[in-house]
Nucleic acid binder design. Structure first.
Length: 432
RNA sequence: GGUGGGUUUUCCGAGCGGUCAAAGGAGUCAGACUGUAAAUCUGAUGGCAUUGCCUUCGAAGGUUCGAAUCCUUCACCCACCA
């Protein structure tokens, strides 16, 4: 990054988007000066990031695009301990195997957001296990622990809230901040990293690192936190009845992922556009106006969903999501092949049936609805059909005795059943 | 230990010998409307069968042509008295 563009390197866009919650210094001029190195840590608590991580990754990406050098730190070591910040209870420890699998998975996901060295960029992927592993307990106590006054540690919110609460805090979790603090110092030594960024709940850990840098080496490290992405109704962003929204398409299909954003409440859409997309502010403001003036178009949500899905799942993933959306809310399904269909309906339960049942009067719409699990009994299925709630390939069936035949196949072997507005099931007909 | 009240379909809650698969409300499910929202409106809501049959009203027996409704015993819950 030699062609430093000082107009983009600063914080203007960050503050305009509301991405800054707290900073230790006036970062704007400092960032304009030259290309800087900063990091955000991610603990490998699962084998995929979820949308709670998205904001942090996007932040790193913004820095990189502004001409800085981001470090994504995977917490192979800190993940073994468990960050007490924002947690009301002591957590169970993950096994070493889980952690290393998770670490590998996160690495892969990071690559679609940042340009790492392998792909010609300058972003760095680090794992704190690499330097923490060789530390002995005594060394750590002498070199690091000595720099942490207990009274300061006790004053941190993350510790205080746990001590005030019922659940207490183990020495292990209490020590978490020492590890994170040392990471910062180490990254400075190794890569010249001067800024740590994190969610607003990370403030205590970040300042712990800054203090440690000053005590050990007289450094003036910097910190910045971003607001937490929360929903206007108070619930946590990314939580649904069926669990978290993951970035891994095997955990959350691109369709579901896309749908999550399409369904974001009007009140949250503006914030999400600012935090999670790279649209220009002018564009976002135009969307804000549209949302006010013509909310029914829901252009903000559609745009948000499109942007985020493309970022996470790529153009192909977005295409699948859009195709699935068209089908889930659209007209008849036909002339698809099995692969397409099963991809689109990845989240939909499916059952298999023997192919020779097709066309048999023993296999009616009622039978199909019951066997697919969409209806709990034949009476239930009968009722659903009578009320106009039974569909084959999105075509309403209104005859109770409708017999499914080979011409009802939407692809080579699959029939798509639907009950009501959006409950789908697949029946796959194998050549038995 | 004594007396009184209760136990109903997913939940709440009517029913107190036939017209009860059982009012009403909630929930749920369809349909309409709509912004893939909220609200609203309409219909459905034990099972099987294209209107008839079967199994349900704490449990088991009994009285009746016929019981969720009456009697007996048992179980659990509530209230009052001791």
């Amino acid at each position: 990054m030699n062609d430093i563009n000082t107009t983009t390197m600063g914080m203007a866009d960050f503050s305009e988007r509301g991405l800054i919650h707290q900073t230790t210094d006036e970062l704007e001029p400092w960032l304009r000066e030259k290309s800087r190195t900063m990091y955000i840590g991610f603990d490998p608590t699962a084998d995929s990031m979820h949308i709670g991580h998205l904001m942090q990754v996007m932040t790193l990406r913004r820095f990189q695009q502004a001409g800085h050098r981001p470090i994504a730190l995977i917490g192979g070591a800190t993940g073994m301990i468990g960050d007490p910040s924002g947690k009301s209870q002591e957590r169970n420890l993950l096994t070493v195997e889980q952690l290393s699998a998770n670490t590998a998975a996160l690495k892969g996901q990071m690559e679609s957001f940042l340009d790492f060295e392998e792909s010609g960029g300058d972003a760095i992927l680090a794992n704190n296990l690499d330097w923490m592993q060789s530390f002995t307990f005594l060394e750590f106590l002498r070199d690091i622990g000595k720099n942490f006054p207990i009274n300061v540690m006790l004053g941190k919110d993350s510790v205080k809230s746990r001590l005030d609460g019922e659940s207490g805090l183990s020495f292990t979790e209490f020590s978490y901040m020492l590890l994170q603090a040392y990471d910062f110092v180490h990254l400075h030594q190794a890569y010249g990293c001067e800024l740590q960024v994190g969610g607003s709940d990370q403030w205590g850990n970040i300042t712990a690192g800054i203090d440690l840098g000053r005590r050990m080496h007289g450094l003036a490290l910097k910190g910045m936190t971003c607001p937490l992405l929360t929903r206007s109704d108070g619930t946590k962003m990314g939580k649904t009845e069926s669990g978290a929204i993951w970035l891994d398409p095997k955990r959350t299909s691109p369709y579901k992922f896309y749908q999550y954003w399409v369904n974001i409440a009007d009140d949250d859409a503006g914030k999400c556009l600012r935090f999670l997309t790279e649209l220009e502010m002018a564009e976002i403001q135009a969307l804000d106006e549209s949302r006010q003036a013509e909310p029914h178009l829901r252009s903000s949500q559609k745009c948000l969903a499109e942007q985020v899905t493309r970022n996470v799942h790529g153009a192909a993933g977005l295409a699948t999501a859009l195709q699935a959306t068209a089908i889930f809310f659209g007209s008849e399904i036909h002339d698809l092949d099995d692969t397409q269909l099963l991809d689109i309906f990845a989240d939909v339960p499916s059952v298999s049936a023997s192919r020779d049942r097709l066309g048999s009067s023993e296999f009616t719409m009622i039978d199909a609805l019951v066997e697919s699990g969409l209806c709990t009994s034949r009476s239930d299925a009968r009722r659903a059909i009578e009320q106009g709630g039974g569909y084959v390939n999105n075509r309403r069936i209104d005859s109770l005795g409708y017999v499914l035949t080979a011409s009802d196949l939407a692809s080579e072997t699959v029939i798509v059943l639907r009950r009501g507005k959006k409950k789908y099931a697949l029946i796959q007909f194998a050549n038995a």
